[in-house]
Design a protein around this nucleic acid. Structure first.
Lengths: 216, 216
DNA sequence: TATAAAGTTTAGCCAAGGCTAAATTCAAAT
DNA sequence: ATTTGAATTTAGCCTTGGCTAAACTTTATA
């Protein structure tokens, strides 16, 4: 239905939203020039996928959002599928799914969802939109500003930075793992956590990318 | 590396080869106009993927053939993978693999081959080229001109005609099945075969698409 | 052998999606 | 209030891969 490029633009707008997204920010995210982004925004606007106020930014229409969620669903189902079947590591999943997501038919999407038992999260803990774009209420919080000395469960890690992912994996941090924040460095925001009686220091930039919940 | 269009042209040239392929035949196979095919043949020739003598036809160079075999390998590995994991029917596999094959990285190709144990044939019985384009000697013969009253093993069915495939499936004909030709209609070439004590008539056009061997 | 038909190529057009350079608009700071 | 700089848009170009219509080869037929 939609081209690879259009799907990529919608996905980026969704990731950067729901606020109005600037041309520069979008262009950076897609690795194109601002001029290219402007042109595409105009095309998407014509197709009713995007609302655009010149010089003010762009945001997805309902139609555009649904299409974006469909891409995100395919992406996350693929990650889950590749993880379960081939046992790919979390740091490999994103790039592969990024390519395959545009070539996944509705049929195959359904077959995979079925095979996996309609999972609610992918291997990074990111919620998988339902077949009609349903996305359940997100309540996970950044590890960076969670309270000390509570038992926390890691719920989400980033999916698109394989360096960060490799570091997290090496230190045993992934969805499902329990940890406790022992102390916080007031200057740089870094935290000391304990995982299975090991102590690890996590920089604030990484900690802000890890989401936790208080449940276990 | 190569675009979807280029990969499709190489694959078609490979399927229609190894003889010189006419512009019309190629265009028909790809559902484009002859003029478009001509232009692409010229581009492929410039890239050293194709040899072209104007008005006489085109054929793959060694480089082009290797690239084509790489696409075919991805296609057949994907068919095998989707069949094994998701249990898709033979008549669904081709179209899905057709889309995904262009988005499959070398890494994923290897992971899938590994997972499957480096299979030599796909679910239609078609040989899967090796990672460097190795294709083992093809000795299977068309069912249409096989001898009567011998125990034959079905080795290959077509992959790209879901109607034919559905008919074959409905009649229990797929790779691995044993059958015997009871008689042949001298006028239209249709044959009467017995499969598990059932008698079935197979038209000559379908019989020419089914390949058999004498081994069991 | 001359001509018609079939197949192929060329010419010129189009849309998508990039780019650079120049013009425009908005916002921030004098 | 003006100016300056950053962000955005426009203008114009490029490549890819389609298309149609017209020209050109080759092959088949009369």
């Amino acid at each position: 239905m939609y081209s690879v490029a259009i799907e990529d633009y919608l996905k980026s707008l969704w990731k950067l939203g729901p606020k109005n997204v600037g041309t520069q920010e979008l262009a950076d995210n897609l690795d194109v020039t601002p001029a290219s982004a402007t042109k595409m925004i105009q095309r998407l606007t014509e197709r009713g996928l995007v609302d655009h106020i010149p010089y003010r930014g762009a945001s997805l229409t309902k139609k555009g959002e649904l299409e974006a969620l469909s891409v995100v669903r395919r992406h996350r189902l693929l990650e889950t599928f590749l993880s379960q079947t081939l046992g790919l590591g979390r740091e490999q999943l994103h790039d592969e799914a990024e390519k395959l997501e545009h070539a996944l038919s509705k049929n195959l999407e359904n077959a995979i969802a079925d095979y996996l038992g309609n999972p609610k999260r992918d291997p990074h803990g990111h919620p998988i939109p339902g077949p009609n774009g349903e996305l359940y209420n997100e309540t996970d919080l950044p590890l960076s500003d969670s309270p000390l000395n509570m038992s926390l469960t890691v719920m989400q890690v980033p999916d698109d930075d394989s360096n960060v992912l490799s570091w997290l994996e090496k230190n045993g941090i992934h969805p499902g793992i329990q940890l406790k924040i022992l102390s916080r460095d007031d200057f740089d925001g870094g935290i000391n956590v304990s995982i299975n009686n090991r102590k690890i220091r996590i920089s604030s930039s990484i900690a802000s990318l890890v989401k936790i919940s208080f449940e276990d």
